[in-house]
């Protein structure tokens, strides 16, 4: 036998095959039900919005990595996923240049300035969303209307913050909220479609159950307490769960890897805290979409939450 060349490398010698690309592919697949529902519900214009967002996110990221002399990392599909996710939390019918500004901010301000995906302290999609919300509040509040006739031209959460819980009950049935037959952001209206995507992510073990479950629990329990106490002055917990982007926050925004805690305890506290803050902002705050702001604000607590390390074996 001729002498074999043996490779010598350190252990471990096997790997699970997990990869960032596979995770981002799963995240993207999980958004498809909501995307398809958006196209069906708001019309073909959604296709335009999604394509502009995804393609521009890829272009900006490629350009930025090329100009800064870094390795091109487009292959990990993070740009595709985050472009799609941003498109789904923008109003349908947003002008094309606004989307381009959004994805540029997302790529540059959201992650590239920090050294790329992994080092970003904030959820890059939410950074872009908030920047657009602050810069173009008018555009961000103009929806094109669904093809089917919804009860109101405003999103349910807008009705809640401007007119109070009584009107919400009058206009929207739970079925409408659950299926998504309301005005709202492109891919955010249907709780059902997002739940399907979330279930897929949990089944694939792409995301850990802790953040979505504790986030939903935080929203439900905190709003539930006030609802029980508050004699009609507060919205019921089911409304808080189904409307206002709670679902997309729970499964897609609060599960962003770099900007959320890594430890079991940290994840639970993050979810509960962001869930409670969501309800606080909606009920007593000036912002309608508390679900998004709450997650972004809680990103700031991640470094502290990560300090709550599990107790080491034998200590």
């Amino acid at each position: 036998m001729s002498e074999l060349k043996l490779t010598v490398t350190p252990s471990p010698h096997v790997h699970s095959g997990n990869s960032l690309t596979a995770m981002m592919r799963d995240f993207t697949i999980a958004l498809l039900p909501a995307t398809i529902f958006g196209i069906y519900f708001f019309g073909a214009d959604v296709v335009r919005g999604v394509l502009i967002a995804v393609v521009s996110a890829l272009v900006w990221e490629g350009l930025s990595q090329w100009l800064s002399g870094r390795k091109l990392e487009l292959g990990n599909l993070h740009a595709v996923f985050s472009g799609l996710l941003l498109a789904l939390i923008l109003p349908p019918g947003l002008p094309w240049w606004t989307i381009l500004v959004g994805t540029l901010l997302m790529v540059l301000l959201g992650k590239e300035v920090f050294g790329g995906y992994g080092s970003n302290p904030f959820n890059s999609v939410l950074v872009a969303w908030v920047a657009l919300q602050l810069s173009y509040p008018d555009y961000m509040a103009q929806w094109i209307l669904p093809l089917a006739d919804p009860a109101t031209t405003s999103a349910p959460m807008e009705v809640f913050t401007s007119q109070g819980p009584a009107f919400v009950r009058e206009y929207f049935s739970y079925t409408d909220l659950f299926l998504g037959r309301t005005a709202g952001f492109t891919g955010q209206v249907s709780a059902l479609m997002l739940l399907i995507g979330g279930a897929y992510l949990l089944w694939r073990k792409t995301i850990n159950w802790r953040i979505p479950v504790s986030y939903l629990a935080g929203v439900f329990l905190f709003s539930g307490v006030f609802w029980l106490l508050g004699t009609g002055a507060y919205a019921d917990p089911l409304f808080h769960i189904l409307a206002g982007g709670t679902m997309i926050s729970a499964f897609f925004l609060a599960t962003d890897l770099p900007s959320t805690p890594t430890t079991p305890q940290g994840m639970i506290l993050f979810g509960l805290g962001a869930g409670i803050l969501t309800v606080i902002i909606r009920t007593w705050g000036a912002w309608t979409f508390g679900a998004f702001y709450a997650v972004l604000i809680f990103n700031m607590f991640t470094p502290f939450l990560d300090k709550i390390a599990p107790e080491v074996y034998g200590r």
């Binding site: 997990n18 960032l20 995770m23 050294g115 790329g116 995906y117 992994g118 080092s119 850990n208 890897l257 770099p258 959320t260 805690p261 890594t262 430890t263 079991p264 994840m267 599990p310």
Partner: peptide, 10 residues
């Protein structure tokens, strides 16, 4: 770079 997914902690 580490993407802080927490799999290793888990």
């Amino acid at each position: 770079v580490c993407v802080k997914c927490g799999y290793c902690v888990e």
